[in-house]
Amino acid sequence: MSFLVDLLTKQGLITAFAVVGAIIYLSHLISKCLTGGRIHGSAIAILAGLGLAYAGGVITGGQKGIADIPMFAGIGLLGGALLRDFAIVATAFEVDVAQARRAGLLGAFALALGTVIPFAIGVAVARFYGYTDAVSLTTIGAGAITYIVGPVTGAALGASSPVMALSIGVGVLKAIIVMIGTPFLAPFIGLNNPRSAMTYGGLMGTVSGVTGGLAATDPKLVPYGALIATFHTGVGCLVGPSILYFTVRAFTG
């Protein structure tokens, strides 16, 4: 037993390939046999991944889901920002430039809305829960943009640690809801063409949520959503500690 654990730990990334392959195989089997193909196999696989992450958190008490178990540390590498970004870039190879260019302005507009709307909601809910200082309100609002914008803004403004944790929590939960919810929302919001995928990427923002959600909806849409969504965190980090903070401060006095 310990020989096997040692082997899997030492072969980290290779173990991850095998584990993820098995998850995807089982998910497609479940999709075909139990749902008659109605729920996409990729959506089930992502859900299974989140389930494993939950289990990992319960077992180890760590923050990196299943990757905190040494045997599955390779999953952290395979699903980390490095390979994720590499693979996102690769999806651009087949992008239809004409279509992307035509939706460029719409994407920028969606990006602006996708920054302001979540922020306003975050601030309003935080205010409702009794936060009154501009720093805490801004930090929680920024977390609703993405889970990176939250802590970056909080750190820049000197927010307290519990507020930072809340801010990250909002962003992570948002990403997870988008990952799971996109395939179900897609038919209702017209998400079936590159143009709407770019709008979606701009409004939802979270790269992990958008790309995960689109992958489970229609893999062809991934590059279009990602193209806009990758600007989201940068824009959020830019306006969070500056324009948005000053706006909130003007209201709180």
Binding site: I23, I46, A48, A53, G65, I66, A67, I75, G79
Partner: peptide
Amino acid sequence: VVAMAAQQN
């Protein structure tokens, strides 16, 4: 993406 999901908090 599946591996990414498996390491969320």
